[in-house]
Amino acid sequence: MEIRMPKLDVSMTEGTFLGWLVPDGSTVAEGEPLYTVGTDKVETEIPAPVAGVLRYGDAETDTDYPVGATLGKLED
C-alpha cells in the first residue's frame, strides 16, 4: 500500500513532509504514528492505515509535496 500525502482540510493542496517517526524496514501496527505532516495551520502525526513493513520512498524531510504524492509504502 502506498503512503501518500494526506488531505487534512478541504482547501489543502500540498503539505510539508516533516519526517518519519519509525525507521525504514520497521514493522508497524495499524493506527501507529508513522510520519508527520505540516501545513500553514497545523503539524500532525499521520497513523499507519494498515499494518505492514515500512519502506521509505524518495520523500525528503522538510519538503512540500502535493496532496496524493507518494511518500513511501507499507508492504505485507
Rank of each mutant, 00 (worst) to 15 (best):
T27W: 12
G25L: 04
T61N: 08
A48M: 10
V10M: 14
L21V: 00
E60F: 03
A48L: 08
P47K: 09
D62Y: 00
K73E: 15
G52D: 11
T63A: 00
Y65G: 00
V22F: 03
G15A: 15
A48S: 09
R55E: 14
Y56H: 04
W20I: 10
L34F: 04
V53E: 12
T13V: 12
G25P: 06
G15L: 09
A51P: 02
K41S: 14
F17K: 01
L34V: 03
P66C: 03
P6F: 11
E45Y: 04
A69T: 07
V22Y: 03
V50N: 08
E60R: 05
A48F: 08
T27E: 15
D24Q: 02
S26F: 02
V10T: 15
T61F: 05
G57S: 05
V50I: 15
K41Y: 13
T61P: 03
T27N: 14
E60T: 00
R4I: 11
P49C: 08
G31H: 08
K7H: 03
A51T: 10
M12E: 04
L21D: 03
A48C: 04
G72R: 11
T44Q: 13
G57N: 07
V42I: 15
L8D: 10
L8G: 07
T63H: 05
D9T: 10
V50T: 11
L71H: 06
T16H: 02
G52N: 13
I46W: 08
D58K: 06
D62L: 00
D76H: 09
A29D: 09
D40I: 14
Y35M: 14
V42T: 14
A48R: 04
T39S: 15
V53R: 15
P47G: 09
Y65A: 01
D64K: 07
D64F: 05
V37W: 02
T61G: 01
P47T: 13
D64H: 10
V42Q: 11
G52H: 11
M1F: 13
Y65H: 02
T27D: 12
D58N: 05
Y65T: 00
D62T: 00
L74E: 12
V37T: 04
V50M: 10
L34W: 03
I3W: 11
K73S: 14
M12A: 06
L74H: 03
E14P: 03
S26G: 03
D9M: 12
G52T: 12
D64C: 04
G31Q: 08
V50F: 14
E30R: 12
